[in-house]
């Protein structure tokens, strides 16, 4: 389904929520069972909105392989997301999209893949993870790293064991501060990137990362330090976007618009332009 894009790219489609999943104290997943499947590539985003209030760019967290069932995972952090978090099954939302290029999955055959998430940043990456899990026979190793402030904020925790049970897939998690009963790593997500050269072939891999901009900055630095090149690092950056089609102007990094040329963009493309990171 292409949501009215042909006729009017700014007109939203009204879609009713089929289910809302409380993932963490601050994150919920909004599920839609669509009459017509919304075909998207992992990493492409939709504009999800509240009638009469507005919309925001979110990359679906569901599998691109099941486009009739769309899930969008949202952190409660502003006006629109606050209202979304108060919504229930049956409530009407607004949808437009999909927009952007998505992750370059076609480049991954025979490569190791490193997926680095931070906080709600694991949401867009889950669409990629579903895709990767469906093609492990054509990939090298898949290494997933994820961090959160605290255990309660570990997103999709119920799925980690299942992901790691796939052949050649490993998963490592960290929390920012120690908690009673936690035996895993403590520290920001870069602390679990130290061992990357032993986990993937740094010359034959791609890394995909999504999280708060400050985390993207330090994760990128760490990956470069560990031997990856800028060409091998993709950042998923859903900055403020309004139109979604490269016209409204606000999401630029250099001559690129993240809505149209991203939101998952190769670090090599943008690294020499101003304001890549805060």
């Amino acid at each position: 389904m292409t949501l009215n894009v042909e006729a009017n790219p700014y007109a939203p489609q009204v879609a009713c929520l089929s289910r809302v999943i409380a993932e963490t104290p601050t994150i919920k997943t909004f599920c839609f069972d669509l009459d017509e499947p919304l075909a998207f590539r992992a990493g492409q985003f939709v504009q999800l909105g509240v009638p009469g209030l507005g919309e925001g760019p979110f990359t679906p967290s569901s599998s691109p392989l099941t486009p009739e069932h769309l899930e969008v995972t949202v952190l409660r952090t502003g006006e629109v997301t606050e209202r979304l978090h108060r919504m229930q099954a049956g409530d009407a939302c607004l949808l437009r999209g999909p927009y952007g290029k998505g992750f370059p999955v076609e480049k991954l055959e025979g490569k190791d893949v490193l997926v680095v998430g931070g906080g709600v940043g694991l949401a867009p990456l889950r669409a990629l993870i579903y895709q990767l899990l469906s093609m492990t026979d054509r990939l090298g190793r898949v290494v997933i790293k994820n961090g959160a402030r605290e255990t309660a904020e570990l997103l999709f925790r119920r799925q980690y064991d299942e992901w790691a049970s796939h052949k050649n897939v490993s998963m490592e998690i960290t929390i920012d501060k120690a908690e009673p009963g936690w035996t895993g790593n403590v520290g920001v997500v870069t602390t679990i990137l130290e061992n990357v050269p032993n986990e993937v072939d740094v010359r034959n891999c791609y890394a995909f990362t999504c999280g708060p901009e400050i985390m993207l900055k330090f994760a990128t630095q760490k990956l470069l330090e560990k031997g990856l090149t800028a060409e091998q690092i993709y950042l998923s950056m859903n900055r403020r976007m309004s139109c979604g089609i490269g016209k409204c102007g606000r999401c630029n990094i250099g001559p690129y618009y993240l809505c149209k040329d991203g939101p998952d963009i190769c670090y090599a493309k943008i690294k020499d332009y101003p304001n890549v990171f805060p």
């Binding site: 009215n4 006729a7 009017n8 700014y10 007109a11 939203p12 489609q13 009204v14 009638p51 009407a92 607004l94």
Partner: peptide
């Protein structure tokens, strides 16, 4: 104005 809609859908005619 680029679109008019209600909770049931977009008013296509008035969104043109």
């Amino acid at each position: 104005r680029v679109a008019v809609y209600s909770a049931t859908g977009v008013d296509a005619e008035r969104s043109c």
